[in-house]
Design a protein around this nucleic acid. Structure first.
Length: 921
RNA sequence: GGACUAUUAGCUCAGCUGGUUAGAGCGCUGUGUUGAUAACGCAGAGGUCCCAGGUCCGAGUCCUGGAUGGUCCA
């Protein structure tokens, strides 16, 4: 038998390295097979509810690190709540309608025009479900627990029905109205396009400069004055209803030599325009600011019945043209915005195929928009208003599929008017708790400033707008009818709308005064997907009996102030007058370590599932814990490497605790707090404080603060001090000595409690630890988180110990000096002569500290003095091969002459039959 | 251009109501151990606190302006 074997070195099956990529999936499967999620909730049946409502990711594409951060953060919170006295279900969701899915179908070679809307929707439906399955698999691989078998999908009939009812309720309150708004319009495919379906190419266009005769100069300009404008889209002059100027720009009133007319152009552009128009020596008669010209009116170039209004807006530039822009609110976004502000009508003069309509005037009716340039010029010349024609080459939007140019064109759209309940929303925002707190200001300002919500989309894959039209074209927006449609959707899904006629969708025997012949049509547009997810408080939280409305918390990226946080509170306040959430957590975005966006071309993409398969999901999770996610965060291979170092530190420290409680039976060997050794009392109190801080920080969702606390605790309190000192007791002492059991009690307590605290963050590792503990629950996750305990005099205890730690720093420095002088190697070779102040003496005595042991030196003498001093010499005597300390009494025991007296006694006690001859080095 | 936000050691982060030589962990360097060993201990070197003004006896911390980055709008 070796001397080493007389020690209690401890063993554990918990390996130093986790082989995480291999073991994690097995564990996840086990959780699923064992219904761990359900079991936990079952334990919490009668507890207070805590609802984190999942914001639905879009069901398209692989998950990225941002998704991982989001889902892991949620899982941490949900798991934590479930372990601290709450019933916290987690229902994951997906956003499954919308344009990107339609685009994917197109990319895959399907042609929307060659099939019915219903068939197209079936393809989209199947595609979405496949994406959901893929993403679900990847989310589960992150260790996230939830109701994966029964997630919420915005395409589910019950969700669609709830959404339609939300719409109905808003309609019932009169918040839904129809208006015109310009969109990208492709005449070649006869449809509206989204930004993503537009590509830009160079195009040569004809630009025109012409004059507008002043009608009412408001005392600033007289009737013989002309405002000079330019346009690159001559056909839109048919719908011109105003002229926009820049409020702070200087405009000059000029009279060219030999002319009686006066013209207004931007001062900065006078020279180039004078040259362009052939004006000779233009005389400047006056200068105005744009704002001075506000609300002056001019005549339409050829339609005397139309008066145009001069308006001010910031989109006007002095790059080119005249500084005055002809404005047709139906033909451009800027035009629309300024037109709305000034209350202009939105007149449309072009049909869906790009041909001018009767509203453009009889001369134009039936002509293709791009063919009317000569006619426009002719009319301008006839009116004496034409000034110049130029060809310009510019970047112009094209239909990505037909490769034909597109135009802006106002089409009928459905809107939610915000104004009637804006104040109510703002009041509700004040009652929501935001993390971080500036979220409140941000959401508040957004709601305060936002315009009405355009909810129609000229698309196919979405929830239909449940609106009918009577024979005379009157839209029928009726809550009762909408509820009827909702019932149909609940039963058949919303594709039903496209498979049936208006008549079939209406209740039997429905009549309307606007349809004397009983004929009806239905709206073909669908709802904005933000209305889908924006109704989730109803479609999920209200729909499912075990969830609550309003939810306790929403957690998403800060972009959702414009998105989901926004749409949810609008619909919720509109219908019920309350915010759908009590608190909101906003997170930043993920960039690489240089602050750059992740992109394929930069090669800096960190895919969560790659990391999971190479390093382990635990590393991703610990990364999430380590970052301040309330701001933008960074991730890279190097950062993850650093995180995995931290992981190893945590893992190894826990492993040490497990190994050294191998022979400890918590039921039989536990030592009560009051009976513990001084150092163990300190450790107990210190860890108890750790638990208190932990819960406080969790309450603020400060994960990164917890991470620091954890690493500091593990590195400093445990590894560098307590466990280091502990070795001389746990290894050396008699197996059942009270000192050793006292320490093991603390070891075991920390292993159990720290494992529990880690479970929300590192669930795989926690469960692996749990298998090596002696606790009754089958899973760490089925246990309850530890609580702060009242310990007698703990605060003073911790304060007093600070005297020792300061003293220890000093000793460590002196020992290091001695080491450098090769006076000693390890601490055990040292003997210390220390001078302590009276205060130190008093505190150390009071705490009953064995300073020699705590400093791990062989010998120590202390004297009292004015100031603290430490002197290091080499220890005297010989080394005891068992505890490796120097002793002056080696050989004192005749039975084991190689040992000191103390070690000989221990061996005799623990191994009564052993003789010295049986021992070897 | 607007709303909100960030910028402290190589990395991840602390620095409360302004007050002595700006901190932690990791990493790095050196070193000790070899009974936590692809582990553990000890020590050390790293910072013009984004820049420029200002207030103050005194500013990383307050004010003003600017630079750079981010999200969402326009």
């Amino acid at each position: 038998m070796k001397i080493k074997d007389t020690l209690h070195l401890g063993h554990t099956n918990f390996p130093m390295r986790g082989s995480l990529p291999k073991t994690e999936p097995t564990r996840e499967k086990q959780w699923e097979d064992d219904h761990l999620y359900e079991k936990r909730l079952d334990l919490n049946k009668n507890k207070a509810h805590f609802n984190l409502h999942d914001g639905p990711p879009y069901a398209n594409g692989n998950i990225h690190i941002g998704h991982a951060m989001n889902k892991i953060s949620k899982d941490i919170i949900v798991r934590y709540k479930n372990m601290t006295g709450y019933n916290a279900p987690y229902v994951p969701g997906w956003d499954t309608h919308g344009l990107p899915i339609e685009q994917q179908l197109t990319k895959a070679g399907y042609d929307r025009k060659s099939m019915s809307k219903a068939d197209w929707r079936r393809l989209a439906h199947d595609y979405a479900l496949k994406q959901v399955e893929m993403q679900k698999r990847d989310f589960k691989r992150l260790g996230v627990l939830g109701e994966w078998d029964n997630p919420y999908l915005t395409l589910n009939p019950e969700f669609e029905a709830a959404q339609v009812r939300v719409f109905g309720a808003m309609a019932g309150k009169g918040y839904i109205y129809r208006g015109l708004k310009p969109v990208y319009w492709s005449w070649s495919s006869e449809s509206a396009l989204a930004e993503a379906e537009v590509e830009y190419h160079d195009l040569e266009s004809t630009s025109l400069f012409y004059a507008n005769r002043v009608k009412d100069g408001k005392g600033v300009l007289d009737n013989d004055t002309y405002l000079v404008v330019w346009t690159t889209t001559p056909f839109t002059i048919t719908a011109s209803r105003g002229i926009t100027v820049g409020p702070n720009f200087d405009y000059v009133l000029v009279k060219p030599k030999g002319q009686t007319s006066k013209y207004v152009v931007a001062k900065a552009l006078l020279e180039e325009n004078a040259a362009r128009f052939g004006w000779k020596e233009p005389e400047v008669l006056a200068t105005y600011k744009g704002i001075d010209l506000d609300k002056i009116t001019v005549e339409h170039p050829w339609d005397k019945n139309i008066t145009e209004l001069v308006m001010n807006a910031d989109h006007v530039t002095l790059d080119s043209g005249t500084g005055l822009v002809h404005t047709a609110p139906g033909f451009g976004e800027d035009d629309y915005n300024v037109g709305m502000k000034y209350g202009l009508p939105i007149d449309m003069t072009v049909d869906s195929k790009g041909y001018l309509m009767k509203s453009a005037g009889s001369d134009f009716e039936g002509k293709f928009y791009d063919d009317v340039v000569p006619l426009v010029i002719e009319k301008l010349k006839k009116a004496g208003l034409w000034l110049a024609t130029e060809k310009i080459k510019h970047s112009y939007p094209f239909d990505w599929r037909t490769k034909k140019p597109i135009i802006w064109r106002a089409v009928p759209q459905w809107f939610v008017s915000i104004e009637p309940f804006r104040k109510e929303i703002l009041d509700q925002i004040k009652d929501v708790k935001f993390y971080p707190d500036w979220g409140e200001v941000r959401l508040y300002n957004m709601i305060k400033d936002r315009g009405d919500w355009v909810i129609s989309r000229q698309r196919v894959w979405g929830v239909p707008l449940p609106i009918f039209y009577a024979e005379d074209g009157t839209p029928i927006v009726d809550e009762k009818l909408i509820d009827h449609v909702a019932d149909l959707f609940a039963k058949h899904g919303s594709t039903y709308w496209f498979e049936h006629t208006a008549k079939e969708l209406l209740p039997d025997g429905y009549t309307n005064e606007h349809s004397p012949n009983g004929k009806f049509t239905k709206e073909e547009d669908i709802m904005d997907v933000w209305f889908d997810s924006g109704s989730s408080w109803s479609g999920v939280m209200q729909e499912r009996s075990y969830l609550d409305y309003p939810a306790d918390v929403y957690l998403e990226g800060a972009d959702q102030f414009r998105g989901w946080f926004n749409s949810n509170i609008i619909t919720s306040v509109a219908v019920n007058g309350i915010a759908p959430y009590k608190s909101v957590i906003a997170q930043g975005f993920v960039f690489d370590d240089k602050g750059q966006k992740m992109s394929k071309s930069l090669g800096n993409i960190i895919s969560p599932n790659d990391v999971a398969n190479q390093m382990g999901t635990e590393i991703v999770r610990l990364w999430v814990m380590s970052i301040d996610s309330s701001q933008d965060v960074h991730v890279s291979k190097d950062i993850l490497k650093q995180v995995s170092e931290s992981y190893r530190k945590i893992r190894n420290t826990m492993r040490f605790l497990l190994a050294n409680t191998e022979d400890f039976d918590p039921k039989k060997n536990s030592v009560a707090f009051s009976d513990r050794e001084p150092i163990d009392k300190w450790m107990t109190a210190d860890f108890n404080q750790f638990i208190k801080d932990w819960h406080e920080k969790m309450g603020r969702y400060d994960f990164y603060d917890l991470f620091k606390q954890l690493i500091n605790f593990v590195s400093n309190d445990l590894s560098a001090f307590y466990l280091d000192v502990a070795k001389d007791i746990v290894y050396i002492d008699e197996a059942d000595s009270s000192e050793r059991r006292s320490m093991q009690t603390v070891f075991y307590e920390i292993s159990v409690k720290l494992t529990k605290l880690l479970t929300p963050f590192l669930p795989h590792t926690a469960e692996e630890l749990w298998e090596n503990l002696k606790e009754p629950e089958a899973y760490a996750y089925l246990s309850e988180a530890p609580r702060f305990e009242k310990l007698a005099d703990a605060d003073n205890l911790l304060k007093d110990w600070d005297y020792f730690f300061k003293f220890r720093d000093l000793v460590n420095k002196e020992l290091e000096n001695a080491r450098e002088k090769t006076l000693i190697g390890k601490n055990a070779e040292a003997a210390l002569q220390v001078t302590l102040t009276e205060k130190q003496m008093e505190v150390f005595d009071h705490l009953q500290l064995d300073i020699r042991k705590l400093l791990m030196v062989s010998q120590l003498k202390e004297t009292k003095g004015q100031e603290t001093k430490v002197e290091v010499t080499h220890a005297s005597g010989q080394v005891d091969p068992r505890d490796r300390l120097y002793h002056d009494d080696i050989g004192a025991d005749t039975k084991f002459p190689m040992f000191s007296k103390k070690n000989a006694e221990i061996v005799e006690h623990d191994f009564p039959d052993l003789t010295s001859e049986q021992l070897e080095d």
